[in-house]
Design a protein around this nucleic acid. Structure first.
Lengths: 234, 234
DNA sequence: CCGGCTTTGTGAAATCGTGCACAAGTGATC
DNA sequence: GATCACTTGTGCACGATTTCACAAAGCCGG
């Protein structure tokens, strides 16, 4: 029972894969699977088995040679490492199309990220009820953050309003931001920002489509079939 | 006038940054800026200037020493390289919360990805109008793909339906998929898949919050202020 | 208890991505 | 047309990540 190892720095690339393993493991647990090999997990996650083993090794040594990993225990360890042993309330800034969809998306609550509040600057949107929460005026942001002890903010505003939203979130005491607006935010050091930009994702796909098209007709160069792309599963 | 260099393999990491540069450059162009230095662009994109130069060098040598890059020309070149010189119609599978938000999100059309159609398996959802498109039954997917020459599909179904959606998309002839469902899809080689998983993003943030919390009290190890994380802007 | 089979954990090599540092262009000024 | 200030393009070293390959460990049947 080594619980002492908890303070290792885990490579960012590994951190990004742990949630994927976690999700698969939970499914497997629900399906009654008790043990899983690195090979099996790798298969399901669409990655290399060695990578799975190395990733899991950062959590400590929780596998049994010749047998594999105990699913329930792995779930417990990954949850612990990711800080998912308690809920993280989030506050959403922007109650437009996307903000409403996010607030209404049950997945947040289910996965341990209850919506502590949703705010909008537009008085017409205030008081609308989306996904069980009532939209509050932007001014009340700091109050919500303080009252519900929120440390994660989600920006779902139009691009022009995103930097202001970020500033307000930071001032209110939020230390992590998930940004859906297509702008590069500038925030103080120590604040973690992740950006999800739908258009960027599509443009990356477009690049691959483009290449595919090029290598079909013209093709003096037989580009390998677009593998190696992040997110590609074969 | 060098159009001959077009067939270089561009590193995936660079491909993921080009859309960000593009967006900034378009803004700058709108603001009347004619030239920009790698330093300036780097600043706006929140990255290192050397990285900008190296990234742009994959497009060919379009800068002028002592001056910088001509914004309009860069925009043209990046567009060309990403295949954004024409529209890429997309089809959305799943007209739930998220699917509707996506269809209603003007950004798609604006950025060259018009919604060619949105389908759902649920008869109750069919015929609803979201964002200018009428929801069609799932059966008509293949027909839509063929008629509108769609090569990009977006999966916005519940997890359980996602693999089926992917299979149908592939069978219909789609070659790139943007997957919002929290499942790992399995698709034939040659199909490009990108996954956007909101819960995963939040869990990554949770990890960083967790670390922050740990290094505050206990703290025998002064973890550097969580930098190096992808997406962090200082 | 032993030998065979399986599967982990991890050094070490290979690959990929980043950032520094600087030579080599370019425009401006005199 | 020589000099200067500025900025690109890129070789190189470094760090991070992936992958290989294999010894060590655990289980099972005899």
């Amino acid at each position: 029972m080594p619980s002492h190892r908890s303070r290792r720095r885990i490579p960012e690339a590994t951190v990004a894969r742990l949630p994927v393993y976690l999700q698969i493991l939970v499914e497997q647990a629900d399906a009654g699977v008790e043990n899983i090999s690195s090979e099996g997990l790798a298969e399901l996650a669409g990655v290399n088995a060695a990578k799975v083993r190395k990733d899991l090794s950062y959590l400590g040594s929780y596998g049994t040679r010749g047998v594999g990993y105990e699913v329930a225990y792995l779930v417990y360890q990954i949850r612990r490492e990711l800080g998912l042993d308690h809920d993280w309330p989030v506050v959403i800034v922007g109650a437009g199309n996307l903000g409403q969809a996010l607030a209404g998306y049950g997945g947040f609550n289910e996965r341990g990220f209850p919506v502590a509040g949703i705010v909008d600057i537009d008085p017409d949107k205030v008081d609308a009820v989306v996904g069980g929460a009532r939209v509050r005026p932007l001014d009340e942001l700091a109050q919500i953050v303080a009252a519900k002890n929120v440390s994660i903010g989600v920006i779902a505003t139009p691009p022009a309003a995103a930097q202001d939203a970020a500033d307000r979130l930071v001032k209110a005491g939020v230390t992590s931001i998930l940004n859906f607006a297509p702008v590069v935010l500038s925030v103080p050091v120590g604040i973690t920002v992740r950006k999800v930009d739908l258009a960027v994702e599509l443009q990356i796909l477009s690049y691959h489509e483009q290449r595919r098209a090029l290598s079909h007709h013209g093709a003096q160069l037989h580009a390998l079939p677009a593998k190696g792309a992040r997110g590609v599963t074969a």
